[in-house]
């Protein structure tokens, strides 16, 4: 997972020199995973679309600053994670009481998907994820669903590797407890 993707590197090189077609290919390569991460974090299709759109637009605008220190996927997820955090903080600010980021709850998911999974283990999982603190939720999704390494998650989340490992550990404990009935 730590090996740079040469196809990504070439696309970035071309995109950095102004080839938007190359950047669109980056969008198609990484968009599905980014969207999936955003949806699991926010559970609101419209908010996710906005965050993913803005993340890619920011990436395009800042492409000349990307030096390849992190994998392209890590860099893109870092940008998206910031957009998601800002969105959730903006939502929290609209609530007239002091809210700890750790207990921010996401808005309702897109209704058709909500109905499709009602009564399933997936619905229970989404509720369980929603009850996790934000960092635990993000780390668990990035590790277990997206298959990223501790180190990449640390870069994305702005946490130490040890903190990431601990967050995943606690997320697993919390999810196991909440999903006990589905075992």
């Amino acid at each position: 997972m730590g090996v740079p993707d040469p196809a990504d590197a070439e696309l970035v090189r071309r995109a950095r020199n102004g080839e938007k077609v190359a950047f669109e290919e980056i969008v198609r390569r990484h968009g599905p995973a980014m969207y999936r991460f955003g949806l699991r974090m926010l559970r609101d299709e419209h908010a996710v679309r906005d965050c993913v759109q803005e993340a890619f637009a920011s990436a395009w605008e800042a492409l000349d600053q990307y030096r390849g220190d992190a994998a392209v996927k890590t860099w893109l997820f870092s940008i998206l994670a910031n957009k998601v955090r800002r969105y959730l903080r903006s939502q929290a600010r609209s609530v007239p009481t002091e809210i700890d980021e750790g207990v921010i709850h996401s808005p309702a998911q897109h209704e058709p998907e909500r109905r499709a999974i009602a009564g399933t283990m997936m619905a229970a999982l989404e509720e369980a994820l929603d009850e996790l603190p934000l960092a635990q939720r993000a780390c668990w999704i990035l590790y277990e669903v997206e298959g990223l390494s501790y180190r990449r998650i640390a870069q994305i989340q702005g946490m130490s590797v040890d903190a990431v490992r601990g967050a995943i550990y606690r997320a697993r404990q919390g999810l196991e407890r909440r999903l006990e009935a589905w075992r």
């Binding site: 599905p32 969207y35 999936r36 949806l39 699991r40 299709e45 996710v48 897109h110 998907e113 999974i117 283990m121 997936m122 999982l125 999704i141 277990e144 669903v145 697993r172 999810l175 196991e176 999903l179």
Partner: peptide, 15 residues
């Protein structure tokens, strides 16, 4: 949890 993560990977492609 492995099953749950696997289902999550499949769920949002339509989105």
């Amino acid at each position: 949890l492995a099953r749950a993560a696997g289902e999550l990977r499949q769920l949002t492609d339509d989105g």
